[in-house]
Amino acid sequence: MDVNTKKLKKNAFRVTKRRGYTASRIRIPGGRLDAKYLSMIQEIADTYGEGVVNITARQGFEVPGIRFEDMDKVNVLLQPIIEGLGINQPNPEGTGYLSSGTRNIAACVGNKVCPMANFDTTEFAKDIEKAVFPNDLHFKVALTGCPNDCQKVRMHDFGIMGMTLPQFHADRCISCGACEKVCRRKVVQAISMKNFRPVRDNETCLGCGECVIACPNFAWQRSEKKYFRLTIMGRTGKKNPRLGQDWIKWIDHDSIIKIIMNTYDYVEEYIDRSAPGGKEHIGYIIDRTGFKEFEKWALKDVTLPSIAEVRTPIYWSGVHYKKQFDY
């Protein structure tokens, strides 16, 4: 059997444990899809697979047990899903996904369902998908509605957490203290009561919106604009897993997309082409070039909102497997 594994991987199939068989990887940006696509996925699994579907950690589907020779037929069945989910497809119809390096843009359920979410995570995920796909570099991006971070975005190269900038309408406040209490008990105690009314410390504030939700009288209201916290270079892996660190607080939607796009240029420039599989986590590249160089590339032509706070330089530590063995 002669199969070009490099090519099939790029086409969103994978080499599986079972010789001669592959799995088809279906990306679902933002983790939300019309239910009708489920039956199409089922059809692929029943017809060419073993009637089984895996839900991946990144909110995609993986249909295993497909024979290598059926890949083209599977790609034909994938076409309505690719189209329906709005995945960019510069390649001819019926030939599947053009790349797989930049992983599915994952998102928590977001404000379509969750009361705590500060934005529509799926919509933003789709915007990012539109901008980055079919880029094949190894990027992981995830979005979450609020700093609860149910999506665990801090484990990603780019983690996007929804924020709102609470607006205080003093004439509506009844001094009940609900906002102070919820922030103290559940968040970071950014609110203190002075002269019977809350005072918010902007530096401490997470922008999570808990005060807005708790306020019984709409004294705290959401800002018209939506803001985000951008955490960067979280990762898992076998060398040095680490949590993404806060980089920019109160950043906006467009700046985030621009920064991600700029980072592709940066990685193209500095990636170690000899790395195993030609694949390197961005964080290791930053370790090599220094944070300032990354920042220079990433912020090129980016106009941040005036309230944005940029933390620089950033240091990460995380788990060093090698060091632990040295002890």
């Binding site: 404000n111 500060n118 934005f119 929804g162 709102t164 807005v212 939700i213 709409f218 209201q221 959401r222």
Partner: peptide, 13 residues
């Protein structure tokens, strides 16, 4: 518009 307690909701006041 968009002044509801939860994001992307409206309120009538």
């Amino acid at each position: 518009k968009n002044t509801g307690r939860l994001s992307d909701t409206d309120s009538v006041r």
